[in-house]
């Protein structure tokens, strides 16, 4: 197949898988029907089945992810809309999100070292609780792999949104502010979506936590990650 044809094929394949799995997710609302997870599996299956490789898919990737930069800038808007809740709970937000971000990173990196995980994989694990576009950049700057980080982020989003609410109830965390912040700090957008199902306050706090955790992790990572890599 010629380059242009292959490129078009991959863009159409990716967009169709996304739209189809999104429809599936919206219909059944089950966390395991995650559109990113299902579409990725489908596309990898097509690549394996046709004998094509990542090098054939890469030109399409570059074009399709071009809008990820502006999309990240767009995250400022929900944060702006929630500025009043942020200001009203500034101390718990800052302290809680920082403590949670540092704790989850430390737990992942310490466990990874204990299990003798390869340093490249370990670095890629570091920003796994941060929303994908920012996590990927943190990982790149630290010398990790973007695809691995994206996979860890999506998996963490699924894990946290499935077990997070029950774990919080088990820990007797009843405050809606605390529940929203915990879900957003660990499971970014996916956690925020679950928090929004609990209450509007929890949802707003989830969105705030996701943004603050991303900025804080980006600032802390260059100093914090090396501590676990020596």
């Amino acid at each position: 197949m010629s380059g242009v044809l292959l490129f078009t094929f991959f863009v159409v394949l990716t967009v169709t898988s996304y739209l189809a799995t999104r429809k599936l997710f919206i219909t059944y609302r089950h966390p395991l029907l995650n559109p990113v997870f299902l579409s990725t599996v489908a596309i990898i299956a097509v690549l394996k089945g046709t004998g094509l490789g990542l090098d054939d898919y890469r030109p399409a990737t570059e074009v399709m992810t071009y809008l990820l930069g502006p999309a990240t800038v767009a995250l400022a808007l929900p944060l702006y809309h929630n500025r009043k809740v942020l200001a009203a709970h500034l101390l718990p937000v800052l302290v809680g999100v920082m403590a949670g971000s540092l704790a989850t990173m430390a737990a992942a990196l310490a466990a990874g070292r204990l299990l003798k995980i390869d340093p490249l994989v370990l670095i890629s694990l570091g920003p796994k609780s941060v929303t994908v576009p920012i996590a990927v950049e943190i990982s790149r700057l630290a010398g990790g792999d973007a695809s691995l980080t994206a996979a860890f982020v999506v998996a963490t989003g699924m894990i946290g949104s499935i077990m997070g609410p029950s774990l919080l109830s088990l820990c007797r965390v009843r405050s809606q502010v605390a529940r929203g912040l915990a879900l957003g700090t660990v499971s970014h957008g996916q956690g925020t979506a679950v928090a929004l199902l609990e209450s509007e306050t929890a949802g707003a706090m989830g969105g705030v936590a996701m943004a603050i955790a991303a900025v804080f992790t980006a600032l802390a990572a260059p100093y914090y990650l090396p501590l676990f890599l020596q």
Binding site: Y18, P133, A151
Partner: peptide, 14 residues
Amino acid sequence: AFFFIPISVGLISF
């Protein structure tokens, strides 16, 4: 979420 899909496909190398 759409933008995460092409990035995740890179997992094929892992």
